[in-house]
Design a binder for these strands. Structure first.
Length: 468
RNA sequence: GGUCCCAUCGUCUAGCGGUCUAGGAUACUGGCCUCUCACGCCAGAGACACGGGUUCGAGUCCCGUUGGGACUACCA
């Protein structure tokens, strides 16, 4: 069997966005699943908009998502000889020709045609002029004017195009650079790419490309056009729908596993299964289960998956990932063991690392600030008595650990004739500043005697001060 | 405007003519658990866009309507 060769070919005109990442993922998974080859190619023939930073950003994002490539990255701007060679073949065969129409003229005629209700196609006036190379001249493809071109798409099925709809597209610009439709074909032909998996915004380009393959007498690859990812308003996903850059998700505290899992499931399914490890994805992914309709990007579901992976990962691993977020907030270093215990209590409560860094504050700062409402409600003057007693009890506790602490608290609540919550909530506010937190006893255990007593005493002073 | 694509709960989807009084996930609501908040568990509400065919039988096939999207460059 022939080896499967796929490629991801972004243009470096911005960051790797969500849609591009999914396309890359589908190509990567398809190649890995079939033991094929995955090529990375940078389509930088638009010299105006391509930048070095974008290339870097795309590579970083690929790496973060864990997509490795077997060949490349190739840069189209370094392959100009190849395009010229293929182009010359077309010219020699009379399948391409030079054109000296100015862009302004072409555009003007396009507008006129549109106004007159005709198709805004290039009118082919240079077709038979027999022009040679010259400044300002482009090379156009001599597109068949009759017949139909059919695309047998792996996802969309068979699509027929009337060649009369197509015009003589530019293959080489006046600056000598190839245009997208030509470069993409030459590259895929010369790199032996046999599966072209890309966004379905390319469907309408495909007949032109097929015609170029045929003109080149090159074997056709299999095409698979995957549906677009839409925003909540069902229009093409863009900045106004929120973060669309892959790396923005990293910065917001998402795990690559979550984003990969989410993105692959967007448009692809495997029965009722929602959670897939990387290995499972490689094992199970195939094109036949990719849907045909566009899907809406749902932040909430991504969040759910992220929460899932945060819960599932070993605490030590989360600590490593969380550190940059803590540093960013300027928290002092407490050592990995301490951090790991703290993180373990936060894992089931946070959906992103960013949330976790925020929630971890009380573990890391010297003294907590009270949420005014919480303090108002729970650190009351009547609390002074029980608080004093609690401080004494804790001081006398020889084993300052979760189980013992719980016993001590329950005993005290019983003595006082109140429910545990009656004293737990004030203590929680004293220790964390807020009314929602991990389990009280694990917090006390982790915080340690010294910190706990200090915060309780501060709370006591606060409560007493209110009675004045 | 033209060409092309798409159409099951709000969202992601299962469904590949009968097993669908349409399944799962998420989000939402209620309950349980419980020191709070989460997690977890249980329950609930929620969809085949519409109209014609084809067929004994249609969410599933065909056509149309409507709606949405993409493309229509010397961008990719």
């Amino acid at each position: 069997m022939e080896q499967i060769i796929t490629r991801f070919a972004p243009s470096p005109t911005g960051y790797l966005h969500i849609g591009g990442a999914r396309t890359a993922l589908f190509n990567w998974l398809f190649a890995r699943h079939h033991g094929g080859k995955f090529i990375l190619r940078i389509e930088d023939t638009d010299r105006e908009r391509s930048t070095e930073e974008s290339v870097r950003a795309i590579l970083d994002a690929m790496e973060w998502l864990g997509m490795d490539w077997d060949e490349g990255p190739y840069y189209q701007t370094e392959r100009l000889d190849v395009y010229r060679e293929y182009l010359q073949r077309l010219i020699d065969k009379g399948l391409a020709y030079y054109c000296d129409c100015s862009p302004e003229d072409v555009e003007r005629r396009r507008q006129e045609a549109l106004k007159a209700g005709r198709k805004p196609k290039y009118d082919g006036r240079c077709r038979d002029k027999g022009l040679g190379p010259g400044p300002g001249r482009v090379v156009r493809f001599r597109c068949p004017q009759a017949g139909t071109t059919v695309l047998n798409d792996l996802i969309k099925g068979s699509i027929e195009f009337d060649n009369a709809e197509l015009d003589d597209l530019v293959l080489q610009r006046s600056d000598g650079f190839p245009t997208y439709n030509f470069a993409v074909v030459v590259d895929d032909v010369s790199m032996s790419v046999n599966y072209v998996i890309r966004g379905d915004d390319h469907v309408n380009n495909t007949p032109r490309q097929i015609l170029i393959y045929q003109a080149l007498e090159a074997p056709l690859p299999r095409f698979a056009h995957v549906p677009m990812i839409l925003g909540q308003d069902r229009t093409r996903l863009s900045k106004r729908h929120g973060a669309t850059s892959v790396m923005a998700y990293k910065e917001q505290g998402y795990l690559p596993e979550a984003l990969v899992n989410y993105l692959v499931r967007l448009g692809w399914s495997y029965g009722d299964q929602e959670i897939f490890s990387r290995e499972e994805l490689i094992e199970k992914f195939d094109l036949d289960r990719v849907g045909a309709s566009a899907s809406v990007f749902d932040q909430e579901k991504l969040l759910w998956l992220n929460a899932h992976y945060i819960k599932e990962k070993p605490a030590g691993e989360i600590v490593r990932l969380l550190k940059p977020f803590l540093t960013e907030r300027g928290y002092p270093d407490h050592g990995d063991d301490y951090l790991e215990r703290a993180v373990a209590t936060l894992q089931p409560r946070c959906r992103t690392l960013r949330e976790m860094a925020d929630a971890a504050a009380f573990y890391l700062v010297e003294d907590v600030e009270y949420d005014p409402k919480a303090a108002e409600k729970f650190l009351t003057p009547e609390l002074a008595g029980p608080l004093k007693r609690l401080i004494e009890t804790l001081k006398g506790l020889e084993r300052f650990e979760e189980a013992e602490l719980e016993k001590a608290f329950r005993r005290m609540a019983e003595d006082l004739g109140v429910k545990l919550g009656k004293i737990a909530q004030p203590v929680r506010v004293a220790l964390t500043g807020v009314t929602a937190s991990p389990g009280l006893f694990e917090i006390i255990d982790i915080l340690g005697k010294e910190t706990v007593l200090r915060r309780l005493e501060k709370a006591l002073r606060f409560a007493e001060a209110r009675s004045q």
